[in-house]
Amino acid sequence: MNEKIVIETGKAPGAIGPYSQAIKTGNLLFTSGQLPIDPVTGKMVEGSTADRAHQVLRNLAAVIESAGGKLDDVVKTTVFLANIDDFQEVNTVYAEYFSSPFPARSAFQVAALPLGADIEIEAVVLIN
Rank of each mutant, 00 (worst) to 15 (best):
M1V: 14
N2R: 15
I5C: 02
I5L: 08
I7S: 02
I7K: 06
E8S: 03
K11Q: 13
A12T: 08
P13K: 11
G14K: 10
G14E: 08
A15P: 07
I16G: 04
G17T: 07
G17A: 10
G17R: 09
G17S: 12
Y19G: 09
Y19W: 10
Y19Q: 13
Q21I: 01
I23T: 14
I23K: 05
I23P: 15
I23W: 02
T25D: 08
T25I: 12
T25M: 13
G26N: 09
G26Q: 08
G26M: 09
G26A: 07
L29K: 01
L29C: 01
F30W: 14
T31S: 12
T31V: 07
S32Q: 03
S32C: 08
L35E: 00
V40G: 15
V40Y: 12
T41H: 01
G42S: 13
K43I: 00
K43L: 02
M44E: 00
M44T: 03
V45Y: 03
V45C: 02
E46N: 14
E46V: 15
S48N: 10
S48T: 10
T49F: 04
D51A: 05
D51G: 02
A53M: 04
H54S: 00
Q55F: 02
V56M: 07
V56P: 06
V56W: 01
V56Y: 01
L57P: 03
R58I: 15
R58L: 11
N59T: 02
A61H: 07
A61Q: 15
A62R: 05
V63F: 00
V63S: 01
I64R: 02
S66T: 05
G68K: 01
G68A: 04
L71I: 07
D72S: 13
D73A: 03
D73V: 06
V74S: 02
K76L: 14
T78L: 12
T78N: 15
T78W: 05
F80R: 10
A82L: 14
I84D: 04
I84F: 03
D86M: 04
D86V: 09
F87K: 13
F87N: 14
E89T: 12
N91F: 04
Y94H: 08
Y94P: 04
E96V: 15
Y97R: 09
S99K: 14
S100I: 12
S100M: 13
S100T: 13
P101N: 11
F102R: 15
R105N: 11
R105I: 11
S106L: 15
A107K: 09
A107D: 07
A107R: 10
F108L: 11
F108G: 11
Q109S: 00
Q109F: 00
A111D: 15
A112K: 09
A112F: 00
L113G: 06
L115G: 01
A117E: 02
D118Y: 05
I119T: 06
E120S: 13
E120V: 15
I121S: 09
E122L: 03
V125I: 10
L126A: 12
I127N: 06
N128T: 14
N128Q: 10
